[in-house]
Design a protein around this nucleic acid. Structure first.
Lengths: 229, 229
DNA sequence: ATCTAGAGTTAGGCTACACTAAACTTGGAG
DNA sequence: CTCCAAGTTTAGTGTAGCCTAACTCTAGAT
């Protein structure tokens, strides 16, 4: 009745730890125990214990009191999980009518259960997209990520015209709100006004002006748009 | 990062036990510890221990040394898992190009990870089918199962014309072989010959005659076909 | 140069779920 | 009616992964 690959068979927990550490070390610099604990909603000692086990397994490099970083193998596993997560999110939005604010939890559970086969079939049926519904790049099956250099809208000067390429809002409510405002990946907007002292930012969109807090604008990653014509 | 329903939160193991017990008590009569152990590939003491826990949780009725049966609540959970399993199998075949012999393991893992929401969306996108690719009935979200009364092809007399409604082969190889022979749910066949002493059975199909062992024929569940014209 | 707050680790404990070995029930054979 | 084999349960362990409490290290303030 049961017949799971089992060869590698990393547990859900292990996969979550590796993914979290990957998230926390964008450049490869070590991640702190407390950061991991906070991200995974666990106690610091639990994380300490798991770090020890994963180091012994060769998935992490641990300098006590100095933080952890992924080994090549750990990074491979983490990227595999990220690919899974983003392919699943894309599939749910693309084929099953989910909205982009509702896919995270589902993907969080499914990413541990799907086979590589299924992920590849999902990706293929979507035309092997390069980014997920939030604009986050989907690593290839070989583990390559195409990171686009982008700037938070919050840091752009007045007058700039940009395309939103990525939306990093954590929670569903924000995502829903941003979608209502038309602020999704692909949208072309320009910064119309910025109030001082971290005051609200006004952006012009094809559908009208929107006023955003700085925190909200920090979630919108943009690339400068070439002026056409 | 994690936000799973959690309210009910039965573990994978528990879900597997309940599903196994459901499978073993088609009529509600108790299932034996050893049968459960065999089906789940566990030791008998492990099963005994779990039975105790699940009885305390009100999911099982346990008469020591006499076997276990599901409570109403246990049955509800089991049927939910069966629905999940069969909807997933149907979806993989219907939309992701899987063949019917390749879906079992995938469904076995996914059934524990999907949300009710996703199952309903999958079912809807298939037009809420009543049976899965093997012809097994899919319980409704409310927990009703429409069992069709069927007879194993192995028990039919020569001359009978039947429609195959359900194929119970356990392993992928057999399923692949049967598919090659055109012996799938929906196929209309008639029993052309039966050799004595559990000898081979010959069935006529639109695509030609097929010779099957009794064991193979026992996997093909059929309903008598009304003679038309 | 020292002290101390805060981060990190170790110690010890708990639950879920598996295992083997040993003890117990049951029902059928004699 | 007794005995035994098969099946079941109890007893005792082990591992994964979590927790709290207590201890240790590091780095910044004085």
């Amino acid at each position: 009745m049961n017949a799971v690959p089992a060869a590698d068979s990393l547990t859900r927990s292990v996969e979550d730890y590796l993914k979290a550490i990957y998230r926390l070390s964008p450049g490869g610099e070590p991640a702190a125990t407390s950061e991991i604990a906070h991200l995974l909603d666990l106690s610091a000692p639990s994380v300490s214990g798991m770090i020890k086990r994963l180091s012994e397994q060769g998935l992490l490099e641990h300098a006590p009191y100095r933080g952890v970083s992924l080994t090549a193998e750990g990074r491979r596993v983490a990227l595999r999980m990220v690919r899974r997560h983003r392919v699943i999110e894309s599939y749910l939005v693309g084929w099953l009518g989910y909205s982009w604010d509702a896919v995270h939890d589902e993907a969080e559970r499914l990413e541990h259960a799907v086979s590589d086969e299924l992920i590849e079939r999902m990706a293929a049926s979507l035309g092997n997209p390069g980014v997920d519904p939030h604009g986050d790049p989907i690593p290839t099956a070989e583990g390559d990520v195409a990171e686009v250099v982008s700037t938070p809208l919050a840091e752009l000067p007045v007058g700039t015209t940009v395309a939103i390429v990525r939306v990093h809002a954590a929670d569903a409510e924000r995502l829903r709100y941003l979608a209502e405002l038309g602020l999704k990946p692909g949208a072309v907007v320009s910064v119309a006004d910025r109030r001082p002292f971290r005051g609200p930012i006004t952006v012009s969109t094809p559908a009208g002006d929107r006023v955003l807090s700085v925190e909200m604008a920090a979630d919108l990653l943009c690339v400068r748009q070439e002026e056409s014509a």
